[in-house]
Write a protein that binds this DNA or RNA. Structure first.
Length: 702
DNA sequence: GCAAGGTC
């Protein structure tokens, strides 16, 4: 009678099998699902992976009207076409579990892992499996800990975590599905047009953050200020010093300060200060996403996908980690020696291997399941450009964390000119340390300054009075909003990038420097008034409190679910009463957004060029002044989504657009078919490939 | 179809 051991995912199954089975492990495969047969303490066991969640919540009856609270677990592949892969896992598990006498749940020991284990046992392993099952508790997938965890199996499932997890799923479904339906149906009734509108515990507060920034920018009134710069000459070199008052808010004050300056400046003091810059911390997914955006402009979602490719190719460790730790058990030397076998890393790896001790800088964050992202040392074969870039960044980062601190010298010089004080500052790197290991990704911020000594007299060439204006706060970009979400505890490392993507696809936001559309503003406005709970970050926090209470046995999950239901019934009843009014407002915003999406840029007559759909399903760009006689048109590609870039072609002056076809890489082009920029297009790929625009960013569909 | 959460 065999023991059935369920794991969270294939990579975990492989590690758990070899830790428990030693030399007895035989690998099998069923419909592409790997599994392992082995002997543990003289008994036969089969180790089988899940693929994350195999089940999802679905309404039991057709959803004709909201609110809906009757949900059940169904296989994911039945509810979502994109989850088709999970079918093979589900079937493999069902077959391999048959005839087992004991069950062990060895998924991650967290809330979601516990739900994965429970659903699989409950729906695939037959009567009694849930009650019989034991739980393996481990926090790292190392052989020693896994064996120890197996020797000390918990005698039952961790039902407290299971219940907390089920409640989380149900609550998210209740809130998200019902409010989304309320929004969509109000729009549909008012405008007759159907659009997928959505709201959720994570996406709506995220959208709210973006709308707040949008309002700040739209309402920003620039305030003028004046700056004073002193241009002096030292050893034939021109130096620009800044007045100690960074900004004068009154022009007159700045002018008086300027007039008080003499023709000579005197060095009043020189201060040299050295400080150490520690190496960077290892990459967790969020840090990698931020850095890849800084270095290459890749969006968080893109980085996540590229990292996943590198992981599947065996080149890097598991990327969806929250850890900034590098445990010694990884074998630093082994990895460095392998990296040293690659030409581009030979020198850097060699310099580290020459050190007596290898101690990585580490960050605060930990992850129960995985260490930080690091190269395995495997040599890549042919990598495409973006994969190559990301791989190089990950290797360079790994090397850099073992480096010595860099020493940077800051030089501050105070100049007196008349009775006014100016400052010069310089910076130079004294010891490069880890900066060299990090290579082209290190920001070497040198500001050279010639040697100056106290009392030295400098000729003043010019006192420059400049007018400036205060700037609105910057727009978020995909990397910075994902970082903001993480800081506020919204979403998880695995979901943030795709939730942001969702906001683009709904037409709520657009662009790489994120702007919120009228539709996005309208949705937040409507919800703020009629369902403020879902706009607030507090909803996530309250879910967490409820889950804690369930885990500690202070409350039953049924009570939590019932409370949410009562609350939502009241909210949705009121929403429905004012449905017509809400729908009117949303419809207006929706129309504006659609029109903006179709608008590609200016026509040479001064009108607007727009995507026009023809009756036979084709499309072209035409001018809004058609009625007034403008007959300008341009052809458009017949498939794919089209996005205005808000710029014109430097060669022909027509608007630039981005075209994205399913499965293809997005590319840019101008509207003029005869433009010289398109020379050779028939033979080659388009000249400038788009690499870094948020996928799906606010697009017009024909 | 609408969420958020796992996974490849």
């Amino acid at each position: 009678m065999k023991i059935f051991i369920l794991c969270e995912k294939p990579s975990a199954a492989s590690k758990i099998a070899s830790a428990l089975g030693g030399g007895s492990v035989r690998k099998g495969e069923r419909k592409g699902v790997p599994y392992y047969v082995l002997e543990v303490d003289g008994r036969e066991a089969v180790v089988v992976p899940s693929l994350g969640h195999l089940f999802t919540l679905k309404n039991t009856k057709p959803l004709r009207d909201y609110p809906v609270f009757d949900v059940e677990w169904v296989p994911s592949y039945l509810a979502d076409r994109k989850a088709a892969r999970t079918r093979a896992f589900l079937e493999a598990i069902r077959e391999l579990a048959r005839g087992s006498s004991e069950y062990v749940v060895a998924t991650d020991f967290d809330v979601e892992g516990s739900v994965i284990g429970w659903t699989v046992l409950r729906f695939l392993c037959g009567e009694g499996a849930v009650e019989k099952a034991k739980r393996m508790k481990f926090s790292t997938l190392t052989a020693g800990e896994l064996r120890e965890a197996y020797r000390n199996l918990l005698p039952r499932l961790d039902f407290e975590q299971v219940d907390a997890g089920i409640a989380r799923h149900v609550l998210d479904w209740y809130w998200g599905m019902n409010v989304s339906r309320a929004l969509s149906s109000s729009l549909q009734k008012a405008a007759g047009s159907f659009a997928k509108l959505s709201a959720g515990r994570v996406q709506t507060p995220t959208l709210k953050i973006l709308t707040e920034r949008e309002k700040e920018i739209r309402g920003f009134v620039p305030r003028p200020f004046w700056t004073l710069k002193l241009v002096v000459e030292a050893d034939g070199e021109e130096l620009v010093a800044e007045h100690e008052v960074e900004r004068f808010w009154e022009e007159g004050e700045a002018r008086r300060a300027k007039e008080a300056c003499g023709e000579e400046a005197v060095v009043r003091g020189v201060e040299v200060r050295q400080h150490r810059r520690l190496p960077p911390v290892p990459f967790d997914l969020g840090t990698l996403q931020a850095e890849a955006y800084r270095c290459f402009g890749y969006t968080p979602l893109r980085t996540q996908q590229l990292a996943q490719d590198l992981y599947l190719a065996g080149l890097i460790s598991y990327p969806r980690t929250g850890s900034q730790k590098l445990p010694p058990a990884l074998g630093y030397r082994g990895i460095l020696e392998k990296l040293g076998g690659m030409r581009e890393y030979r020198e850097a790896a060699g310099s580290l291997l020459a050190k007596r001790e290898l101690r990585p800088r580490e960050g605060e964050k930990t992850d129960p399941a995985h260490p930080s992202i690091h190269p395995t040392g495997e040599k890549p074969g042919e990598l495409k450009g973006p994969q190559r870039n990301l791989f190089d960044l990950i290797v360079r980062r790994f090397l850099a964390v073992f480096g010595d601190p860099a020493v940077v010298e800051g030089i501050g010089v105070e100049l007196a000119c008349g009775d006014q004080t100016f400052r010069l500052s310089g910076r130079r790197v004294v010891e490069r340390g880890w900066l060299d290991l990090y290579g082209r990704y290190a920001e070497a911020e040198e500001v050279p300054l010639p040697p100056l000594r106290e009392g030295q007299r400098l000729r003043v060439k010019e006192v420059r009075l400049e007018r400036g204006e205060t700037q609105p706060p910057p727009r978020y970009n995909p990397a910075s909003i994902v970082r903001e979400m993480a800081e506020r505890g919204l979403g998880t490392k695995a979901t943030r990038a795709s939730i942001l993507q969702n906001l683009y696809e709904r037409g709520y936001i657009r662009g790489e420097r994120i702007t919120v559309t009228e539709l996005g503003m309208g949705v937040v406005e409507a919800l703020q008034e009629h369902c403020p709970e879902i706009v607030s970050e507090e909803l996530t926090a309250s879910f967490e409190r409820e889950m804690d209470a369930i885990q500690e046995g202070r409350v039953r999950k049924e009570e939590v679910m019932e409370k949410a239901r009562v609350k939502l019934e009241e909210i949705l009843r009121k929403f429905k009463e004012r449905e017509a009014e809400i729908g009117e407002r949303l419809a207006e915003m929706y129309r504006k957004t659609r029109l903006a999406q179709r608008t590609l840029g200016k026509c040479r007559c001064g009108g607007e060029l727009r995507v026009i759909a023809t009756r036979n399903g084709k499309r072209f760009a035409g001018c809004s002044n058609f009625e007034r006689g403008c007959r300008v048109t341009y052809p458009l590609p017949s498939s794919g989504t089209i996005l205005a870039l808000g710029r014109t072609c430097p060669q022909c002056g027509t608007p630039l657009i981005q075209v994205r076809r399913p499965g293809g890489r997005p590319y840019r082009m101008c509207l003029e078919p005869g433009c010289p920029s398109k020379e050779g297009w028939r033979k080659k790929e388009p000249a400038s490939r788009q690499e870094n625009t948020p996928e799906g960013g606010g697009q017009a569909r024909s």
